[in-house]
């Protein structure tokens, strides 16, 4: 395995259950992160709906995969950027999102927030700074 660590930015723009993009993206993220790369996620447009709290799919016969975002901290995914403007347009605030954390091994497993709100300008630099951008 190569020892070069690249920065991957996964851009998530689709709502979770109407199409398969969100679930496919999550599976690719899990695989990529298992190979110890620098993996970051950006949720924008309807992608912000992927990480809303309180999803209950019991009545639609689909698997609720939102709890899996909570495991990403264990996979060393520390940065989950969320587009501020996309949230506002959809009548959501950060309090409507899952409480996603990662644990800092160097600070005795201190819990830190993974979600970072970003504006359009910051999103431009995120995409420029990444080695690989994967859009779903």
């Amino acid at each position: 395995m190569s020892s070069v660590i690249k920065q991957f930015l996964y851009v998530n723009r689709k709502a979770p259950y109407g199409t398969v993009y969100a679930l496919e993206s999550l599976e690719v993220v899990l695989i990529g992160a298992a190979f110890e790369q620098d993996v970051r996620l950006l949720f924008m447009d309807d992608g912000v709906f992927q990480i809303t709290k309180g999803q209950d799919t019991a009545d639609i016969g689909m698997k609720n995969f939102s709890p899996t975002y909570g495991a990403l901290g264990d996979y060393d995914v520390k940065y989950m950027y969320v587009c501020k403007q996309s949230l506002e347009e959809r009548g959501l605030t950060v309090d409507d999102l899952l409480d996603l954390k990662w644990e800092d091994e160097d600070e005795d497993w201190a819990e830190k927030d993974s979600i970072i709100l970003v504006d359009r300008e910051e999103m431009k630099s995120l995409m420029t700074d990444a080695d690989v951008v994967l859009s779903f």
Binding site: A15, P16, Y17, F49, T52, K53, G54, Q55, D56, T57, A58, D59, I60, M62, N64, S66, G91, D96
Partner: peptide, 11 residues
Amino acid sequence: PDVKARGIADK
């Protein structure tokens, strides 16, 4: 059922 699945029941 679609409203509940998407976590927006109280909105």
